[in-house]
Amino acid sequence: MELQGLDIDVVRKGSGQPLLLLHGGGGPIAQMPFADGLAEKFEIIAPTHPGFNGSKIPKHFTRIDDLVYLYLDLLDELDLTDVVLMGFSMGGWAAAEMAVANSSRLSRLILVDSVGVKVGGREDRDIADVFALPGEKLAEIMFHDKSLAPNPADIPDEQLQIVAGNRTALGVYTWDPYMHNPKLPHRLHRIKIPTNFIWGASDGLVTLEYGEKFCAMIDGATMTVITEAGHSPQMEQPDAFVNAVFEVAA
Protein backbone atom coordinates (compact mmCIF):
# COMPACT_ATOMS: atom_id res chain seq x y z
CA MET A 1 0.00 0.00 0.00
CA GLU A 2 1.03 3.61 -0.44
CA LEU A 3 2.01 5.55 2.68
CA GLN A 4 3.87 8.85 2.82
CA GLY A 5 4.44 8.45 -0.91
CA LEU A 6 6.23 5.15 -0.32
CA ASP A 7 5.19 1.76 -1.59
CA ILE A 8 4.95 -0.37 1.54
CA ASP A 9 4.51 -4.11 1.38
CA VAL A 10 1.73 -5.13 3.78
CA VAL A 11 0.63 -8.71 4.42
CA ARG A 12 -2.96 -9.07 5.64
CA LYS A 13 -4.40 -12.35 6.80
CA GLY A 14 -7.14 -13.70 9.07
CA SER A 15 -10.16 -11.95 10.45
CA GLY A 16 -11.17 -10.48 13.77
CA GLN A 17 -9.72 -7.71 15.86
CA PRO A 18 -6.96 -5.91 13.94
CA LEU A 19 -3.43 -6.83 15.01
CA LEU A 20 -0.64 -4.66 13.66
CA LEU A 21 2.49 -6.79 13.64
CA LEU A 22 5.90 -5.08 13.47
CA HIS A 23 8.79 -7.38 12.66
CA GLY A 24 12.30 -7.22 14.06
CA GLY A 25 15.72 -6.87 12.52
CA GLY A 26 15.62 -10.31 10.94
CA GLY A 27 12.94 -9.22 8.49
CA PRO A 28 9.27 -10.06 7.81
CA ILE A 29 7.78 -12.94 9.82
CA ALA A 30 4.12 -12.94 8.80
CA GLN A 31 4.64 -16.07 6.70
CA MET A 32 5.63 -18.11 9.75
CA PRO A 33 3.30 -20.68 11.35
CA PHE A 34 2.72 -18.60 14.48
CA ALA A 35 1.14 -15.86 12.34
CA ASP A 36 -1.32 -18.37 10.91
CA GLY A 37 -2.13 -19.35 14.46
CA LEU A 38 -2.82 -15.74 15.42
CA ALA A 39 -4.83 -15.26 12.23
CA GLU A 40 -7.47 -17.61 13.61
CA LYS A 41 -8.59 -14.89 16.00
CA PHE A 42 -7.11 -11.67 14.60
CA GLU A 43 -6.85 -9.82 11.36
CA ILE A 44 -3.08 -9.59 10.95
CA ILE A 45 -1.71 -6.48 9.31
CA ALA A 46 2.03 -6.93 8.84
CA PRO A 47 4.01 -4.27 6.99
CA THR A 48 7.59 -4.73 5.86
CA HIS A 49 9.80 -1.92 7.17
CA PRO A 50 11.39 0.06 4.34
CA GLY A 51 14.84 -1.39 3.68
CA PHE A 52 13.88 -4.93 4.59
CA ASN A 53 13.27 -7.84 2.26
CA GLY A 54 15.03 -6.13 -0.63
CA SER A 55 13.04 -2.89 -0.46
CA LYS A 56 14.63 0.55 -0.66
CA ILE A 57 15.36 2.75 2.35
CA PRO A 58 14.06 6.26 1.64
CA LYS A 59 16.90 8.76 2.00
CA HIS A 60 15.19 10.58 4.83
CA PHE A 61 14.65 7.40 6.85
CA THR A 62 17.41 7.38 9.42
CA ARG A 63 15.87 6.55 12.81
CA ILE A 64 13.23 4.45 14.50
CA ASP A 65 10.73 7.33 14.59
CA ASP A 66 10.54 7.22 10.81
CA LEU A 67 8.82 3.86 11.30
CA VAL A 68 6.75 5.20 14.18
CA TYR A 69 5.16 7.93 12.07
CA LEU A 70 4.88 5.67 9.04
CA TYR A 71 2.73 3.23 11.01
CA LEU A 72 0.72 5.89 12.80
CA ASP A 73 -0.16 6.99 9.28
CA LEU A 74 -0.98 3.40 8.39
CA LEU A 75 -3.50 3.23 11.24
CA ASP A 76 -5.10 6.44 9.99
CA GLU A 77 -5.04 5.37 6.37
CA LEU A 78 -6.80 2.08 7.12
CA ASP A 79 -8.96 3.84 9.71
CA LEU A 80 -8.29 1.05 12.21
CA THR A 81 -9.55 1.17 15.78
CA ASP A 82 -9.28 -1.14 18.78
CA VAL A 83 -5.94 -2.35 17.44
CA VAL A 84 -3.62 -4.82 19.13
CA LEU A 85 -0.13 -3.53 18.44
CA MET A 86 2.51 -6.26 18.57
CA GLY A 87 6.19 -5.62 18.03
CA PHE A 88 9.16 -7.95 17.98
CA SER A 89 12.64 -6.85 19.00
CA MET A 90 13.31 -3.67 16.99
CA GLY A 91 9.65 -3.67 15.96
CA GLY A 92 8.80 -3.70 19.69
CA TRP A 93 10.78 -0.54 20.13
CA ALA A 94 8.83 1.09 17.29
CA ALA A 95 5.57 -0.18 18.84
CA ALA A 96 6.37 1.26 22.27
CA GLU A 97 7.21 4.61 20.68
CA MET A 98 3.92 4.54 18.75
CA ALA A 99 1.94 3.86 21.91
CA VAL A 100 3.71 6.78 23.58
CA ALA A 101 3.05 9.12 20.67
CA ASN A 102 -0.60 8.29 20.02
CA SER A 103 -2.52 5.31 21.32
CA SER A 104 -5.99 6.54 20.34
CA ARG A 105 -6.43 3.75 17.81
CA LEU A 106 -4.82 1.13 20.05
CA SER A 107 -6.37 -1.10 22.67
CA ARG A 108 -3.37 -3.23 23.61
CA LEU A 109 0.40 -3.28 23.30
CA ILE A 110 2.35 -6.55 23.13
CA LEU A 111 6.14 -6.40 23.19
CA VAL A 112 8.10 -9.51 22.31
CA ASP A 113 11.78 -9.64 23.24
CA SER A 114 11.73 -5.95 22.56
CA VAL A 115 14.60 -3.50 22.60
CA GLY A 116 14.15 0.25 22.96
CA VAL A 117 15.31 1.26 26.44
CA LYS A 118 18.50 1.21 28.42
CA VAL A 119 18.08 -0.52 31.77
CA GLY A 120 21.64 -0.60 33.13
CA GLY A 121 24.51 1.80 33.65
CA ARG A 122 26.55 3.47 30.97
CA GLU A 123 29.11 0.69 30.92
CA ASP A 124 26.59 -2.14 30.93
CA ARG A 125 26.06 -3.74 27.55
CA ASP A 126 22.29 -4.12 27.97
CA ILE A 127 21.75 -5.17 24.39
CA ALA A 128 24.25 -7.45 22.64
CA ASP A 129 26.11 -5.71 19.83
CA VAL A 130 24.90 -7.85 16.96
CA PHE A 131 27.22 -6.08 14.53
CA ALA A 132 30.26 -7.07 16.54
CA LEU A 133 29.64 -10.79 16.79
CA PRO A 134 30.73 -13.66 14.56
CA GLY A 135 27.89 -15.65 13.01
CA GLU A 136 28.21 -18.65 15.30
CA LYS A 137 28.21 -16.48 18.42
CA LEU A 138 25.17 -14.62 17.15
CA ALA A 139 23.35 -17.93 16.67
CA GLU A 140 24.21 -18.83 20.25
CA ILE A 141 22.64 -15.75 21.75
CA MET A 142 19.64 -15.68 19.42
CA PHE A 143 18.41 -19.25 19.71
CA HIS A 144 17.64 -21.67 22.49
CA ASP A 145 18.11 -24.50 20.00
CA LYS A 146 21.19 -23.43 18.04
CA SER A 147 20.46 -25.96 15.34
CA LEU A 148 17.62 -23.69 14.19
CA ALA A 149 20.04 -20.91 13.34
CA PRO A 150 20.28 -20.41 9.60
CA ASN A 151 23.66 -21.29 8.14
CA PRO A 152 24.80 -18.85 5.44
CA ALA A 153 26.28 -21.77 3.53
CA ASP A 154 22.79 -23.19 3.01
CA ILE A 155 21.13 -19.94 1.94
CA PRO A 156 20.85 -19.24 -1.80
CA ASP A 157 22.65 -16.12 -3.08
CA GLU A 158 19.56 -14.09 -3.69
CA GLN A 159 18.18 -14.81 -0.23
CA LEU A 160 21.51 -14.10 1.42
CA GLN A 161 21.63 -10.71 -0.25
CA ILE A 162 18.24 -9.99 1.29
CA VAL A 163 19.67 -11.00 4.67
CA ALA A 164 22.57 -8.61 4.05
CA GLY A 165 20.14 -5.83 3.11
CA ASN A 166 18.14 -6.49 6.28
CA ARG A 167 21.32 -6.07 8.30
CA THR A 168 21.91 -2.70 6.69
CA ALA A 169 18.35 -1.60 7.41
CA LEU A 170 18.67 -2.74 11.01
CA GLY A 171 21.83 -0.63 11.23
CA VAL A 172 20.08 2.40 9.80
CA TYR A 173 17.25 2.27 12.37
CA THR A 174 19.25 1.27 15.44
CA TRP A 175 22.95 2.23 15.16
CA ASP A 176 23.32 5.12 17.58
CA PRO A 177 22.14 5.33 20.32
CA TYR A 178 22.28 1.59 19.90
CA MET A 179 18.84 -0.06 19.81
CA HIS A 180 17.32 2.37 22.28
CA ASN A 181 16.01 5.85 22.82
CA PRO A 182 17.34 7.39 26.05
CA LYS A 183 14.17 9.48 26.30
CA LEU A 184 11.76 6.59 26.02
CA PRO A 185 11.74 5.62 29.74
CA HIS A 186 10.71 9.18 30.57
CA ARG A 187 7.75 8.91 28.21
CA LEU A 188 6.45 5.41 28.89
CA HIS A 189 4.04 6.79 31.51
CA ARG A 190 1.94 7.98 28.58
CA ILE A 191 1.05 4.38 27.76
CA LYS A 192 -2.39 3.83 29.35
CA ILE A 193 -3.49 0.79 27.33
CA PRO A 194 -3.00 -2.75 28.68
CA THR A 195 0.53 -3.86 27.92
CA ASN A 196 1.94 -7.37 27.85
CA PHE A 197 5.52 -8.54 27.46
CA ILE A 198 6.32 -11.94 26.02
CA TRP A 199 9.90 -13.13 26.35
CA GLY A 200 12.01 -16.12 25.35
CA ALA A 201 13.62 -17.47 28.52
CA SER A 202 16.93 -18.12 26.75
CA ASP A 203 17.17 -14.81 24.92
CA GLY A 204 20.81 -13.71 24.92
CA LEU A 205 20.37 -10.59 22.83
CA VAL A 206 18.11 -8.96 25.39
CA THR A 207 17.92 -11.15 28.45
CA LEU A 208 14.82 -11.93 30.46
CA GLU A 209 16.27 -9.70 33.18
CA TYR A 210 16.28 -6.84 30.68
CA GLY A 211 12.71 -7.68 29.73
CA GLU A 212 11.59 -7.62 33.35
CA LYS A 213 13.18 -4.22 33.91
CA PHE A 214 11.56 -2.90 30.73
CA CYS A 215 8.22 -4.40 31.84
CA ALA A 216 8.48 -2.64 35.21
CA MET A 217 8.70 0.71 33.41
CA ILE A 218 5.10 0.46 32.16
CA ASP A 219 2.27 0.62 34.68
CA GLY A 220 0.37 -2.64 34.98
CA ALA A 221 2.34 -4.44 32.27
CA THR A 222 2.54 -8.23 32.55
CA MET A 223 5.30 -10.64 31.57
CA THR A 224 4.82 -14.07 30.00
CA VAL A 225 7.95 -16.18 29.72
CA ILE A 226 8.23 -18.78 26.96
CA THR A 227 10.59 -21.56 27.96
CA GLU A 228 13.00 -23.24 25.56
CA ALA A 229 12.98 -20.19 23.34
CA GLY A 230 15.55 -17.51 22.58
CA HIS A 231 15.13 -14.10 21.00
CA SER A 232 12.33 -15.33 18.71
CA PRO A 233 9.88 -17.33 20.83
CA GLN A 234 7.30 -17.04 18.04
CA MET A 235 9.67 -19.06 15.85
CA GLU A 236 11.04 -21.55 18.36
CA GLN A 237 7.80 -22.22 20.27
CA PRO A 238 4.96 -21.12 17.98
CA ASP A 239 2.18 -22.94 19.85
CA ALA A 240 3.22 -21.68 23.25
CA PHE A 241 3.60 -18.24 21.78
CA VAL A 242 0.14 -18.18 20.21
CA ASN A 243 -1.37 -19.46 23.43
CA ALA A 244 0.41 -16.75 25.37
CA VAL A 245 -1.07 -14.12 23.08
CA PHE A 246 -4.57 -15.60 23.26
CA GLU A 247 -4.33 -15.71 27.02
CA VAL A 248 -3.74 -11.98 27.32
CA ALA A 249 -5.49 -10.63 24.27
CA ALA A 250 -8.22 -12.85 22.87
Binding site: F131, A132, L133, P134, G135, P152, A153, D157, L160, Q161, I162, V163, A164, G165, R167, T168, A169, L170, G171, V172, W175
Partner: peptide, 23 residues
Protein backbone atom coordinates in the same frame (compact mmCIF):
# COMPACT_ATOMS: atom_id res chain seq x y z
CA UNK B 1 40.47 -9.46 10.43
CA UNK B 2 37.33 -11.11 11.75
CA UNK B 3 34.50 -11.22 9.22
CA UNK B 4 32.10 -9.13 11.30
CA UNK B 5 34.56 -6.23 11.37
CA UNK B 6 34.84 -6.46 7.59
CA UNK B 7 31.13 -6.18 7.13
CA UNK B 8 29.51 -3.40 9.15
CA UNK B 9 25.94 -2.68 8.09
CA UNK B 10 25.74 -0.58 4.95
CA UNK B 11 29.42 -0.44 4.08
CA UNK B 12 29.20 -2.90 1.22
CA UNK B 13 26.36 -3.35 -1.24
CA UNK B 14 24.26 -6.44 -0.38
CA UNK B 15 25.95 -8.61 -3.01
CA UNK B 16 29.37 -8.06 -1.44
CA UNK B 17 28.06 -8.20 2.10
CA UNK B 18 26.39 -11.53 1.36
CA UNK B 19 29.74 -12.93 0.26
CA UNK B 20 31.31 -11.86 3.51
CA UNK B 21 28.45 -13.45 5.48
CA UNK B 22 29.32 -16.62 3.62
CA UNK B 23 32.91 -16.25 4.76
Amino acid sequence: VADHWKNPPGYHPPVVSANVLRG
